[in-house]
């Protein structure tokens, strides 16, 4: 069974989706990520979807779910690199992905996650 790799960079996890995911693969990613967050104690998850040309309602909902699960596990998810055509199509589909934080590209996404990690460190320091 194929898997989408999950890379760990410090307290953040990095996922680059480079293939058109079939449904099982998307479900597996959700499970893998939850397990990885639990084992690594990561506080940020960056999902790069710049390779995806199609996000239908199922994949969209999966991204939403993944973000929700991560949030419950105290990790913030940032989806980066969404193509314009994909964004427009998602809106036309009626999916706004309101539960998912997005950023234009990886740099900005990492900045968001770094900021959050920084905030936590200050909080932990008190």
């Amino acid at each position: 069974m194929d898997r989408i790799p999950i890379l760990q960079m410090g307290r953040a996890l990095l996922i680059t989706i480079q293939v058109d995911m079939h449904d099982q693969l998307a479900l597996a990613l959700e499970e893998d990520l939850a397990a990885k967050i639990a084992s690594s104690g990561a506080r940020g998850v960056l999902i790069d979807i710049s390779s995806l040309e199609i996000i239908d309602s199922f994949i969209g909902r999966m991204l939403d779910n993944i973000a929700g699960v991560s949030r419950l596990m105290d990790a913030e998810t940032v989806v980066v690199g969404m193509r314009p055509a994909v964004a427009i199509t998602l809106v036309e589909l009626g999916l706004s992905l309101s539960g998912v934080r997005t950023a234009l590209n990886v740099d900005r996404g990492m900045a968001i996650i770094q900021q959050r990690l920084h905030d936590y460190e200050i909080a932990d320091g008190d």
Binding site: E53, I54, I55, D56, R83, P84, A85, V86, I88, T89, E92, L93
Partner: peptide, 8 residues
């Protein structure tokens, strides 16, 4: 855009 629409 239409390619994505149709495929979706």
């Amino acid at each position: 855009q239409d390619q994505t629409r149709i495929a979706t």
